[in-house]
Design a protein around this nucleic acid. Structure first.
Lengths: 115, 115
DNA sequence: ACAGCTACCTTGCGTGGCCATATAGTGTCG
DNA sequence: CGACACTATATGGCCACGCAAGGTAGCTGT
């Protein structure tokens, strides 16, 4: 009940933010899905499973934000690398702007600065 | 399509955050729903309609995070004031901890500091 | 053969934000 | 008086996302 409440809220909190993370992680380089999971797992609060990442990447491709290329792996199945398209970079920029505004808004309210 | 994409993402981004806002706004004082809408409307990125605030407040009451008291208004229908319970204050504290961790994680990734 | 890691993908559920809508009290202007 | 606007609360329905669970498949070591 109490821990559940917080856990559920945390799940809601991550909506949208995880997309921003993945898009940010792809800035300036190409990565494959499994790798993204491992890398973000090292950052506090951003741990996510594969069942979360792959749908995000699929959406990005469908929306033209990323493009993919298959490559063989020395240790396992082929990897599907993702890289940003110009449209993806543009979207990332807009998202970062919105993020900065909202983040500062929250911190403003949390600092008890409301009228 | 492009503006829609960003608008939709923004909606997702706000999930959870608006709850945190409302709870924060109630710290140390009592407010009524309509007032919360007006106050948060002054903060960039946190504008929300009444159809968003009232469900949040209802959930908070159902979960025992706030308690309410009706009061007559000099200019309109009666106001329902909300104030935090001890449980609500505790929840707010935990949420702020999670928020700080996630916020810093995002900014860390956005600063291109991933391994 | 089996276990375990790498690597990809899909289905189904639960939840929250928000538009539209309903209800109602108060004040104002033509 | 009647229309409009503001204050104030509340609800139903749609949609998108996060995620646990499950499935497929390749490669390595015992």
């Amino acid at each position: 009940m109490d821990p559940d409440l917080l856990a559920n809220w945390t799940t809601q909190l991550r909506k949208g933010l995880l997309e921003l993370c993945v898009l940010s992680a792809l800035k300036g380089r190409r990565l494959y899905g499994y790798d993204i999971v491992k890398r973000l797992g090292a950052v506090g609060g951003l741990v996510m499973g594969e069942g979360t990442v792959y749908p995000i990447l699929s959406r990005f491709k469908r929306e033209g934000l990323v493009e993919t290329s298959l490559e063989e792996s020395p240790e396992g199945p082929a990897r599907k690398y993702y890289q940003l398209t110009p449209r993806g970079r543009q979207m990332l920029g807009k998202m970062l702007t919105v993020w900065a505004e909202v983040r500062d808004g929250i911190d403003h309210v949390a600092a008890e600065l409301l009228p």
